[in-house]
């Protein structure tokens, strides 16, 4: 027994040593980031998103106006130095409503994507790795949930479980899981037959370690790219639900709800509708272009860059 043990450990150390020489840790990530930096569009989009994100998160520092204060003397004011983007039909400052609304929208979108990615990994990894009965059980369920329109799923879940931001987010997560889980399952199946997985198995590495170390490292680029698209999709869904008045309760500003509440005033004050719409579009476009750039940078198969 001790004989086997020692031989295994010596092989292990040999592997570690060769690993170290062949590819220093994190090398392809550095390489990917360098390629990403050369892609001007992706870099600009990344910074646009970060600026919007930070502005929303630091809303209390940036604006002095409260987003709920109603002022009947300042209805539908045009943009001025006092109110940067003017005021809405109730005299509330639009700029601060947009920033505070972005806090809600972006927080929901990012949290949804994080939770869906984590749960998608937890479901997709074992399903792809072990295959067989587990996969036969999981895949049809994923296909079924994935084929239901997001809005229908959210409405029914909200209706059954009750209104509230929490339930709203659970429903969005449930709707987003299948895409992550299916992607991960497919990528796992793609690399499961590779030699290094076989080698790891032959060395007696446990299933858990193979999944977490060898497989996760190799599907991480695909997962990151999917994550940025996932955030964009969740953001669009979130604003649509806000527009339809589902999930977020009125005094709280949400980008979609802001559009809904100001759309009747479009002839008198077009900026009230145009600015939130442009903001949503810019956020989504910057996320998806950044995702495209990431895919090009992290995917070494194309010799494009």
């Amino acid at each position: 027994m001790s004989n086997i043990d020692s031989s295994a450990s010596s092989v292990g150390s040999a592997v570690a040593a060769s690993d170290h020489i062949a590819s220093p840790a994190g090398n392809h990530w550095v390489e990917g980031l360098r390629r990403l930096g050369k892609n001007k569009v992706a870099t600009i989009c990344f910074f646009v998103f970060i600026i919007i994100f930070l502005a929303c998160m630091f809303a209390p520092v940036i604006t002095k106006w409260d987003y709920t204060t109603i002022n009947k003397d300042f209805q539908l004011e045009p943009p001025s130095l006092n109110h940067l983007l003017g005021t809405d039909n109730l005299g509330r400052d639009v700029f601060s409503r947009l920033l505070y609304g972005g806090r809600i929208t972006l927080r929901i979108a990012v949290t949804t994507a994080i939770l869906a990615a984590a749960l998608g990994c937890a479901i997709g990894l074992p399903a792809g790795y072990f295959g067989g009965r587990l996969d036969a059980l999981v895949s049809p369920v994923l296909d079924l949930i994935g084929s239901i329109p997001v809005i229908l799923l959210v409405i029914v879940t909200e209706f059954a479980l009750g209104w509230g931001r929490g339930n709203f987010m659970y429903a969005m997560v449930i709707a987003a899981i299948p895409q992550f889980a299916r992607l991960i399952r497919a990528s796992v199946m793609n690399i499961i037959g590779r030699e290094y997985i076989e080698a790891a198995r032959a060395l007696g590495v446990s299933h858990k370690m193979i999944m977490l170390r060898h497989i996760m490292h190799n599907i991480a680029p695909a997962l990151i790219v999917r994550f940025t698209t996932g955030v964009a999709e969740a953001l669009l869904t979130c604003t649509i639900m806000g527009y339809l008045g589902i999930g977020i309760n009125p005094p709280t500003p949400e980008w979609g709800y802001i559009v809904f509440s100001t759309k009747s005033y479009i002839r008198r004050a077009p900026h009230l509708v145009v600015i939130p719409c442009v903001l949503i579009a810019v956020t989504v476009i910057s996320l998806s272009l950044f995702g495209d750039g990431l895919r090009d940078a992290l995917d070494p198969r194309d010799g494009r860059v």
Binding site: L236, I240, L289
Partner: peptide, 22 residues
């Protein structure tokens, strides 16, 4: 097509109404 896929459908509805009807 990038613009159209990033603009939420309600904004598109507003734009279509404004252009065609108004």
């Amino acid at each position: 097509s990038l613009l159209l896929s990033a603009i939420p459908s309600y904004s598109m509805a507003i734009a279509v109404t404004l252009i065609l009807a108004v």
